[in-house]
């Protein structure tokens, strides 16, 4: 939020050198200042991000013995992980979730951001409605998942509604604890990650461009296709990165909403960790990390998001 404050009129200030009471920063201090200022961030990210990831890579080559991990350099963990069709199947399932959820969140998120950016008149309402969309992000994911039980459960609202309409005469079991419920929960949780970046980019689109396109005879569809979508691409790609990485690494939504019937790569890793099979978990984690990086890398190749910051 840009602070709109009146710029003090510098020209009427005392002429340079007249009263210099302030101490200026010594050049040496000025030179090391950024290093001191960035040091805390370096420390936290080194200890809790870089070292742990390196540990995972190292441990993925260790030997898993009954007594614990033994440092060594073997490929067995990768062979075990990738040699089983279950792993491949799980990857396919996880990627399928990622694709479905991505398509749904993109469709819904883009439309919502578009309404906010182009169809809400007053900027006050725009901000209020934006907050309305953003606030659930600050509440608990677990509770937002639990809250589907009264809707989708065996005696839930959805089943009662369907039975009242006579569409079905017995409660549908597949509503809760199914791939459908998993996708629904994902969309519920993560659409915001699409709305926020897309809205952000849309707000920066020069409205004159839209006017110009319409003056040149473009209809709503052409304006959308040739002006708004191309200019929203950076936001779309940031949202895509968020949603894809969140779904690819998820274990909790899949576990809770599928009732243990569906698997995900994250769940494999989590289960291996619970059994203290760290080397196997690590090998799976490295494969997952490479998959995610590959996906993010290919998105970034298509769209440069650096100018978004």
């Amino acid at each position: 939020m840009p602070p709109d404050i009146a710029i003090p009129d510098v020209t009427t200030a005392a002429p340079k050198g007249a009263v210099v009471t302030g101490r200026t920063e010594s050049p040496a201090l000025a030179a090391i200042m950024p290093y001191l200022q960035s040091l805390p961030l370096w420390i936290v990210l080194a200890i809790f991000l870089a070292i742990p990831i390196c540990m995972i890579v190292v441990a993925s080559f260790w030997d898993d013995q009954a007594t614990g991990m033994v440092p060594s350099f073997i490929w067995d963990n990768y062979r075990d992980a990738l040699g089983e069709w279950v792993t491949w199947n799980t990857y396919l399932q996880t990627i399928r979730y990622a694709v479905i959820v991505w398509a749904l969140t993109l469709g819904i998120g883009f439309t919502v951001a578009y309404v906010l950016a182009f169809h809400i008149r007053s900027s006050l309402w725009q901000m209020v409605l934006f907050q309305v969309c953003a606030i659930p992000f600050l509440t608990s994911n677990v509770i937002r998942m639990i809250s589907w039980i009264p809707f989708l459960g065996r005696n839930g609202l959805a089943n009662q509604f369907l039975m009242d309409l006579g569409i079905t005469d017995h409660p549908l079991e597949f509503l809760l604890y199914s791939p459908f419920a998993v996708c629904l929960a994902f969309v519920h949780l993560y659409t915001l990650f699409m709305v926020v970046p897309i809205f952000n980019t849309m707000m920066r689109i020069d409205r004159a461009l839209v006017e110009a396109a319409r003056d040149a005879g473009a209809g709503p569809i052409e304006v959308m296709r040739h002006v708004i979508i191309p200019l929203s691409l950076p936001g779309i790609s940031i949202g895509t990165i968020f949603v894809v990485t969140l779904v690819m690494g998820d274990f909790i939504t899949v576990q809770m909403m599928s009732g243990g019937q569906s698997a995900s790569v994250g769940l494999i890793i989590k289960n291996a960790m619970s059994l203290l099979q760290y080397p196997e978990a690590s090998a799976q984690a490295v494969v997952l990390l490479l998959t995610v990086l590959l996906m993010v890398g290919s998105i970034l190749r298509v769209i440069d998001i650096r100018k978004e910051l």
């Binding site: 990485t245 890793i269 990390l289």
Partner: peptide, 27 residues
């Protein structure tokens, strides 16, 4: 090192949470 630190920060956002858990647990 500004660029490295910037990318490290972004990675922190992208790396799946299960990997952070696993890595910290291992460490």
């Amino acid at each position: 090192g500004a660029t490295v630190l910037f990318y490290l920060t972004i990675s922190s956002l992208i790396v799946p949470s299960i990997l952070i858990s696993l890595g910290i647990g291992l460490m």
